[in-house]
Structure formats: C-alpha cells, structure tokens
Amino acid sequence: MSKERLENSTFQLLAGDLIAGGYGLRFQAKGRSMVPTIQDGEIVHIKPIASDMLRIGDIVLLRRGEDFKAHRIIRKRGPLFITRGDAGVGNDGEIRCDQILGKVIAKEVIGSSRLVRLDRFAARLSFFTSEARRRASFLVRSRRKHRNRPAERY
C-alpha cells in the first residue's frame, strides 16, 4: 500500500470514528476546486450531519475512492447526491450518503485567526439562484439552437 493510500485510509478511519461519535473535525483543504470560497491550504471545520438534513448548496466532506473532497451539493437524485467544486466544470458523479462524512460549516482564513462561516443561508440561496439562472440560460440557448437548425431531409 502506498504511503498516500495509507494516509488516506488512516484519515478515513479517524474521521469516520470522530463523526460517528458526534465530534467535529478540522482538516486542511488542498487544491483550487472550491476557490474563492475555500482557498488552497485553508483549514475547514466539519460537523456531523444526518443525510436527511443535507440541502442543495451545502458544502460537504465526501470520500470518493481513495480521495477526500470538500465540495458543494448541486443536486439530489433520490437518495443520491451530485456534488461539484465551485471552480470545477465537471461534477463528482453520484455520491451515496455513506460517502458523506460531514458538512463544512466554517473555514479559518489563511494567515489570520479569523473564522468564516460557510453554512449561511445567504450563500446557499445565492448558489441556488445562480444555478437556476444558469440552467434556464442553457435551456433557452438549446431551444434557440434547435429552432435555428435547418430541417433534415430524408
């Protein structure tokens, strides 16, 4: 087992135990997938949450294979969740409840002791509205393109 996999397995065990025990945890985010909401290197705070309490727009810590990501829920499909990084183009695919370790509630800003809440209703509403607008815009453009397409000949 590579060192990377060993660290991830250890983190998974530790995080799972803490969350199951009702404890929160902190971990350092790596990468750009959630900028500017979460910067590379910022410490994020996770709290346990029941899956039926999760909402579209929430940022969650999820496990996908050997990797852990803090991404935003963009859709729900029955018992499954679709997540994506704010700065990402593609989504993470369907995520089961047992892959979600907890909800991201806050972050520690780089270079300061300031704590910023990431679970405010305003941020979720803003995400919800911008996604709805984006999908509406996509639908309008698709229909326009379809109307402008010349009729096919057989």
Partner: peptide, 10 residues
C-alpha cells in the same frame, strides 16, 4: 461569480 459573494460578479 461565486456563491460566496452573492449573485453579482465579484
């Protein structure tokens, strides 16, 4: 645009 900053461009 980012959900972190509301609906208008940041």
């Amino acid at each position: 645009n980012s959900p972190a900053f509301g609906l208008l461009p940041y």
